[in-house]
Computed example of a mutant assay.
Amino acid sequence: MTDTAVKHTPVMLARCLDLLAPAFEVASPLMVDATVGLGGHTEGALKRFPSLTVIGIDRDPVALELASARLAPFGNRFRPFQGTYDQIGDALDGQLANGILMDLGVSSMQLDEVERGFSYATDAPLDMRMDATSGESAAELLARIDRNDLVRILRRYGDEKFAPRIADLVVKRRETDPLQTTGQLVDIVRAAIPAPARRTGGNPAKRTFQAIRIAVNDELAILEDAIPAALSNLAVGGRLVVEAYQSLEDRIVKDYFNAGANPQLPAGLPMTADEVDAHRTLRLLTRGAERASESEANTNPRSIPVRLRAAELLTQWRHDVR
């Protein structure tokens, strides 16, 4: 097991398990860790719930291999599945889960393994693929993308107000010198952003790297499919817990949860409270999005941006919700 796996601290572990616990009060409960990563959340769940079986999904074969090694002591109570989390139905293969956990975004291992190209802090190949064995790398994306499309990506996925300047420099640079390393991209961002704007808000390349990573891995489109897929494969009374690390992810989760918990009924239709409740598909388990405690934020900085939401499935999920 790598040092990263040993050091990895799962975010808001106790709170996630507390939220899932009532769903596991059945014989032989089944959980899906839809973003298993290095297996920290799954390990905690398997220890706390002795009769639990977990299916762990990850698109990264390296992460899945490390997680499987970490969780080997639990035998067949852990079952790995390589794929994206919108493939949860394939992973379950006809079964229904009692609990589903999604810890979104890039994993600790992917950030810490310099050669993966996710970090703007160290020069490395410009890759950013969560599954490094398939798909288009960040370098390949930046080599062929239209200038206006790049502006759109930087604005939408990174909220980068200097997107046009960054895109212009990318296009100019690649005419003579293909972008192949993270350091080259950092240099472009620094050159594009005025000095006063670089003095606040942390590393100026953060937003650009986030935006390109999301585009390379098609993260938001997959998440749009993954939430209804999860709810469709959840047993009634089951629970879905999602940890999002940025506002675009959280908005998708929030919209689905609110649509299930607050059905849009015809205006003026006379209905009792019980009749309204009968139309609800979900019961929200968190008051808005919960954040990590101050003590956890101090000991595990990765928990600082997390927004945690959870919901219980009250009746079979309908695909027309939202």
Rank of each mutant, 00 (worst) to 15 (best):
152 R>T: 08
225 D>M: 13
139 A>C: 02
271 M>G: 03
252 I>L: 10
303 S>I: 13
320 D>K: 11
111 L>V: 09
14 A>P: 01
241 V>C: 08
294 E>T: 12
78 F>G: 14
151 V>D: 05
168 D>I: 00
192 A>L: 10
36 V>N: 04
27 A>V: 15
8 H>W: 02
194 P>G: 11
297 A>L: 09
187 D>R: 13
187 D>T: 15
240 L>V: 04
116 R>C: 02
144 R>H: 10
124 A>L: 11
52 L>I: 13
130 M>D: 05
213 R>D: 02
305 P>W: 13
253 V>L: 02
122 T>W: 04
153 I>C: 06
88 I>R: 01
239 R>T: 11
198 R>W: 05
278 A>G: 14
140 E>G: 01
144 R>D: 03
46 L>W: 09
220 L>T: 09
318 R>P: 07
43 E>F: 07
207 R>N: 00
221 A>M: 10
275 E>L: 14
8 H>I: 09
81 F>W: 10
138 A>C: 03
56 G>A: 03
196 P>K: 10
312 E>I: 07
47 K>W: 03
31 M>V: 14
66 L>K: 12
254 K>C: 03
117 G>F: 06
82 Q>A: 14
22 P>A: 10
9 T>P: 00
224 E>I: 03
92 L>T: 08
290 E>H: 05
294 E>Q: 12
56 G>Y: 01
126 L>C: 02
160 E>N: 07
77 R>V: 11
221 A>R: 14
132 A>C: 01
185 L>K: 07
271 M>W: 01
298 N>D: 15
193 I>Y: 08
273 A>H: 01
262 N>G: 00
90 D>T: 15
168 D>S: 12
267 A>R: 13
295 S>D: 14
128 M>K: 07
130 M>C: 08
162 F>S: 04
59 R>L: 14
215 A>Y: 05
298 N>Y: 00
1 M>L: 13
48 R>P: 09
137 S>W: 00
4 T>R: 00
62 V>A: 13
177 D>H: 10
237 G>V: 12
116 R>S: 05
188 I>F: 04
293 S>N: 05
203 N>F: 03
131 D>V: 08
102 M>R: 02
132 A>F: 00
57 I>R: 08
139 A>Y: 00
103 D>G: 06
111 L>F: 15
164 P>E: 04
76 N>E: 15
314 L>A: 02
43 E>D: 12
98 N>E: 14
186 V>E: 04
283 R>V: 02
5 A>V: 15
289 A>Q: 01
147 R>G: 04
127 D>W: 05
155 R>F: 04
27 A>T: 15
82 Q>K: 15
292 A>S: 14
40 G>R: 14
114 V>S: 05
19 L>G: 12
281 T>S: 08
308 L>P: 13
245 Y>Q: 05
14 A>D: 14
244 A>M: 03
41 H>L: 09
40 G>M: 13
117 G>E: 01
30 L>Q: 11
146 D>G: 11
202 G>K: 10
